[in-house]
Nucleic acid binder design. Structure first.
Length: 855
RNA sequence: GCGGAUAUGGUGGAAUUGGUAGACACGCUGGUUUUAGGUACCAGUGAGGCAACUCAUGGGGGUUCGAGUCCCUCUAUCCGCACCA
């Protein structure tokens, strides 16, 4: 009786083997083709979750498969280790962010290792490591000198009770999550990366990035949001003589509607609005009230349009006596265009709603070519020709746009303008646990770089989170310093860098992770970059990926322009949620099903099944990967993650799923154990005198091998898994009757073992050790599909009548239509259907289908 | 609101890209092995019908000899919308 497969012994055995033999370490080898596979590095939150298991299993399949294909594979791993949760933990558990982070890294590294990933751990980096952020500070200074970084005023969520800036997620219904105080929008002077300088470049390259999902490319395209329009300067008419602003510059994508303009709307943050606040208390209060609202595109689009009437008017550029009233409006974004628009109610729904609300004039200037008439409720946004527009009358929209721009440019009142929705990337964070910005402000007002030989500018370790505000700002010995050149006193920049900066270049760092002289080495990146395959969650579709693209371009390194050749975004791992009668979330393992009822084990309360949602701590619908790995093993966990659902879709965790994965692993082991005498041979005769059974087995194995190979290439791991099942089923059914049968069986099993290694490597290695080949599978090449086994002499042709399947016929390959026609007379129901009818025509696809059209 | 995606048995999902719809797995039903069991193996399993057949890929329409696949339209669900990472 053969032994059961014991993952508790086998998995650690191979993990140490791989480690001891440096099986997955990588170095430059000019003779070999490289393959750089990268999964998005994790935030060290404490423990790995199922999302990590899925992400890294997926990448590992590719890594192991490509290695078997003969590539020189680099598969590194690191830690996105700066960030807010470490500070929260510091406050809640009184532990330093550094200690907390490094502890988490240790725990999670152990957990990842238990998954059996083929990672080159010698390349590990952590962004909170001085070695790493020293180089990042150098990059900052490089960007600073290249004028890709500048400072400007920008709004933040300000919690007045705590004296801190809040992240959006920390603002709950307009209040600070911890203090409950009403959050204000406060202006702070902050650092920005000039990503907009690269807007066109980032947009253009998208066109050629055809190994990225269309979805992500579309999202980025919309994010960059290129629009062509014009800027127009309007003269301000004010009764208040002391009002010192004379012009408002508006941006519009519809200059053709200039004669339909009936009002002007400004953002509450517009300089003119600021100036008005100083002239009038009432207006000042109203604007402040408007500013307290959250302004993102979603709320702006959904909320009611509100305007504050001002005393100001602007002069129409082409109509001598036409004055447009100026409003401050809550639907105008300061960051987009110029923060000011003119409203043309007849041809823009938002403007129409606004005009109707404030009883403003509406002038139709485009006659719709589909004949739609204006009803004062629905703006006319279709195509048409200009009316009521003086010199534009009769023109098409495009002609009118060009004509208006030309006139404005002639009169120096405006100009054509390409505008991007993309805004510059604000990188200042008023937080402790991030990369310090190597800048100081001297007492005479000069902005001074920290000299490179003094880098890294380290984070101070003795800090106090009990004082409200940013710990760096509260840290006197760190904050106050001297200018290195003049010796004048200076204050350090106390903001730290957005953690998206850390992750915007880590893929370059992996190429030379321990280099203390430079961020990356040009020989190394020349060989390894770009990343051939990047795998991660779709939630990073825009920011992280766009920032990484920007960084790579902005660094202006000739070796690489775009960082990620191919991108794959995997789906989330979901689980049913449970709530007890008190309305509290309940852990799945705390739920027992008794008859038809769900009972909470710990309290005995009834439990309601909720929606299936992505696993999250707050909803308690989590399953701990480590306990799964301990109970079932890493291989079944990996198998489950790959089977059933396509990787880009969300999956539902299920107990029966993991159990099924465990069963197939056991089954494969039993098959190999039982037949170990047959796999102990190197012989492979393609031309042996196979029995019919053996030939069919060979055929099935190679057909499925072909499909497994193609499926992995296409990331269809679920399909690859299905084909492995077919191999297993065919092998377990096969009963060898002679030597050749045994040979066929042995070879089939060896192909099976080789093919499952990317998915379930421990089991595969253990099985392989039973063959006469004592190499680890990590150096064994992928098997070749033997075409001979795929060829057949006969094929099945489907017979259709009027497009409906009526039967099938087995014929020799490449049989002519005439022959098939003759033979179908023998099939009774087809013959019946044909009798008494006229054949109008027939369509014959050789070896596939014959369709007969009858009348 | 804007933008994007998805829809196939009881369930997760296949479908060589316009050519046998439902591969593979889960679940379920029946059986076998003295199996304590949640084990293993065999058979069955889209719906209706004894059957030949008929109906079936969210709804409706279209193109085609032929549509899950292409076009139009409707419906439902999910995702993103700038300080979570």
């Amino acid at each position: 009786m053969s032994e059961k497969y014991n993952h508790r012994v086998i998995e650690p055995k191979w993990q140490s083997y791989w480690k001891d033999n440096n099986s997955f370490n990588s170095k430059i080898d000019p003779k070999k083709k490289k393959y750089y596979i990268l999964e998005m590095f994790p935030y060290p939150s404490g423990r790995i979750h199922m999302g990590h298991v899925r992400n890294y299993t997926l990448g590992d399949v590719i890594a192991r498969y490509k290695r078997a294909q003969g590539y020189n594979v680099m598969h590194p791993m690191g830690w996105d280790a700066f960030g807010l949760p470490a500070e929260n933990a510091a406050i809640e558990n009184n532990i330093s962010p550094k200690k907390w982070t490094y502890q988490n890294i240790e725990t999670m590294k152990d957990q990842l290792k238990k998954m059996g990933l083929s990672i080159d751990w010698s390349r590990e980096v952590a962004t909170c490591d001085e070695l790493y952020y020293k180089q990042q500070q150098k990059l900052f200074l490089r960007f600073f000198r290249n004028e890709l970084i500048y400072k400007k005023e920008s709004l933040v969520n300000w919690d007045p009770a705590e004296g801190t800036v809040l992240a959006n997620e920390q603002v709950i219904e307009g209040r600070g999550w911890r203090s409950g105080a009403e959050v204000e929008q406060k202006k702070l002077s902050q650092w920005f990366f000039k990503i907009t300088k690269f807007a066109e470049n980032l947009l253009e390259s998208l066109e050629t990035m055809n190994k990225w999902p269309d979805k992500v490319r579309t999202m980025q395209k919309n994010w960059i949001g290129k629009s062509v329009g014009c800027e127009i300067d309007f003269e301000i008419i004010s009764k208040n003589k002391s009002f010192d602003k004379s012009k408002i510059r508006i941006f519009t994508t519809r200059p053709d509607t200039i004669f339909g303009a009936t009002f002007c709307a400004l953002s509450p943050y517009h300089p003119v609005a600021e100036a008005l606040m100083e002239t009038d208390d009432k207006i000042s209060d109203d604007i402040k009230e408007m500013r307290s609202q959250k302004v993102n595109e979603e709320t702006i689009a959904k909320n009611e349009k509100i305007g504050i009437k001002t005393d100001l008017y602007i002069k129409h550029p082409f109509l001598e006596n036409k004055l447009l009233p100026v409003y401050i409006a809550n639907f105008i974004l300061m960051d987009y265009g110029s923060g000011a628009i003119y409203g043309c109610p007849a041809h823009d729904q938002r403007d129409l709603d606004f005009a109707n609300k404030y009883d403003l004039e509406v002038i139709q200037v485009i006659k719709q070519s589909d004949g739609t008439l204006f009803d004062n409720k629905n703006a006319l946004v279709g195509n048409g020709n200009l009316i009521n527009s003086k010199f534009l009358n009769g023109m098409s929209i495009d002609e009118a746009k060009n004509e208006v721009i030309k006139k404005l440019e002639d009169h120096k009142q405006g100009n054509k303008k390409i505008n991007y929705r993309l805004r510059d990337w604000g990188i200042s964070r008023q937080r402790y646990w991030g990369c310090p910005i190597p800048i100081m402000y001297r007492e005479d007002g000069a902005v001074i770089e920290v000299p490179e030989d003094q880098l890294p500018l380290k984070l101070p370790e003795e800090i106090d989170f009990n004082i409200p505000g940013n710990p760096l700002d509260n840290h006197p010995t760190w904050k106050y310093t001297k200018c290195p050149e003049t010796g004048m006193s200076a204050i350090r920049e106390t903001d730290t860098l957005d953690t998206f900066v850390d992750s915007a270049w880590y893929f370059l760092r992996f190429c030379s992770p321990t280099n203390n002289l430079e961020p990356f080495n040009s020989n190394e990146i020349k060989y390894w970059m770009p990343v051939d395959q990047y795998v991660g969650g779709v939630e990073h579709a825009i920011l992280h990926l766009l920032y990484s693209r920007f960084f790579t371009k902005a660094l202006d390194i000739k070796e690489v322009d775009e960082p990620f050749e191919s991108l794959f975004t995997q789906g989330m791992v979901c689980h049913t949620t449970f709530k007890n009668t008190s309305g509290e979330w309940v852990y799945p393992e705390d739920v027992n099903s008794i008859k038809d009822k769900l009972i909470q084990i710990s309290t005995g309360e009834n439990v309601q099944k909720g929606l299936i949602e992505s696993m999250s701590k707050s909803k308690k619908n989590i399953v701990d990967p480590e306990s799964i790995i301990n109970t079932y093993g890493a291989d079944p966990a990996r198998w489950f993650m790959l089977s059933d659902s396509p990787p880009e879709k969300d999956i539902n965790w299920s107990e029966s799923g993991i159990n099924g994965a465990w069963k197939i692993c056991q089954k494969i082991w039993m098959i190999v154990e039982k037949n170990k005498n047959y796999i102990n041979s190197d012989t492979y005769y393609e031309d042996a005198d196979w029995s019919e059974n053996a030939f069919q087995l060979n055929r099935c194995i190679h057909q499925n091998l072909d499909e497994i190979t193609r499926s992995i290439e296409k990331f269809q791991m679920n399909v690859a898994i299905a084909k492995v099942y077919e191999m297993v089923n065919a092998i377990s059914k096969f009963k060898p009757l002679d030597k050749n049968d045994e040979l066929a069986l042995g070879n089939s099993i060896k192909i099976l073992i080789r093919a499952i290694e990317p998915m379930i490597p421990h089991l595969a290695e253990e099985c392989w050790s039973l063959t006469n080949n004592h190499n680890s599978l990590s150096v064994v090449p992928w098997p070749k599909v033997v075409e001979k086994f795929l060829e057949t002499s006969s094929v099945t042709v489907v017979i259709q009548i009027n497009g409906k399947r009526r039967g099938e016929l087995i014929v020799d390959k490449n049989t002519q239509e005439k022959e098939v026609m003759k033979k179908i007379k023998d099939i009774k129901n087809i013959n019946d259907a044909l009798s008494g009818k006229n054949i109008i025509k027939s369509i014959y696809i050789p070896n596939k289908i014959l369709n007969i059209v009858l009348k």
